[in-house]
Amino acid sequence: MKKRKRITVRDMQLYSLCIIPMILVFIFNYMPMVGLIIAFKNYKFNLGMFRSQWVGFSNFEFFIKSDVFFQLVRNTLLNNFAFIVFGVMSSVIVAVLLFELTNRNATKIFQTILITPHFLSWVVVAYIVNAILNVNYGYLNQLLGLFGVDAVDWYAKPNAWPPILTLTFIWKNVGMDSVVYYAALMGIDTALFEAAEVDGANKLKRTLHIVIPSLVPLITILTILKIGNIFRADFGLFYTVTQDGASGNLYSTTNVIDTYIFRSFKENASGNSYGLTAAVGLLQSVVGMILVIATNAASKKVDKELGLF
């Protein structure tokens, strides 16, 4: 297929299909990117993007030289890493198990229930998490009480929060994420299963050799996409659900890049908040891109067909 060939009428037809979507992306995504120059400026409203003063890389320096830089990177990376690994694992497992269910009505009910948390905004989730973890009346503490364990003030235990946040994340997303995998499984050629049955393969073998491999391309792509954003933290989860890191007590594990930037300008937004925010955003993008290119290359090494581009 790698032969050089001329562009045919068919190719032109294919290109023409791309035009409108590409224009939309251009207008709404590429045109605003001119604003990336704000990252190198001391941005003032009255001077605008172009006439504001250049400040070189000093906006980046602010962030990189910060005392908590390593803490932020560590927290952002580790939490997101856990979200990706456990998120993908749980949604694949749920999809595969749903696929094994033969009663379609049951599937419908279960799937509908699984996606309900998706409709709740993080603020509402924060209320619910508090209802479970609150030191006085939280459900978890009531449960612990039954076993004679004293109530724990979870909002003062930083080490408990990476698992709590991961669980919250999975709870909110597993239903929706598994929908993709489930739909993909629906597309598997049933002839393959029949052949497997003829060969006497049991359920487990069938799952391991047909079902999971058929999901690998999708898993790879979705994971690569997620890795690109591994340096971006979900502000709502890390700020709202932790109740602003429970007023500071949880920062050692829940302070992430996005919450740090937010707090930096809470009281002094005139201090070039726009420039610094843009700089950190740009940095997150660049690192993300490097990671994506690396994972993309790695997955292509494993299998040529895998990979995003």
Partner: peptide, 27 residues
């Protein structure tokens, strides 16, 4: 004029936030 102390103020806000429960609520 906070222009010359912008970065310090940002860092201080972050530190103060971290100790909010301890300093302001006495936990």
């Amino acid at each position: 004029n906070t222009d010359v102390i912008t970065n310090e103020l940002a860092n201080i806000t972050n530190v103060a936030d971290e100790y909010k429960a301890k300093r302001e609520f006495g936990t």
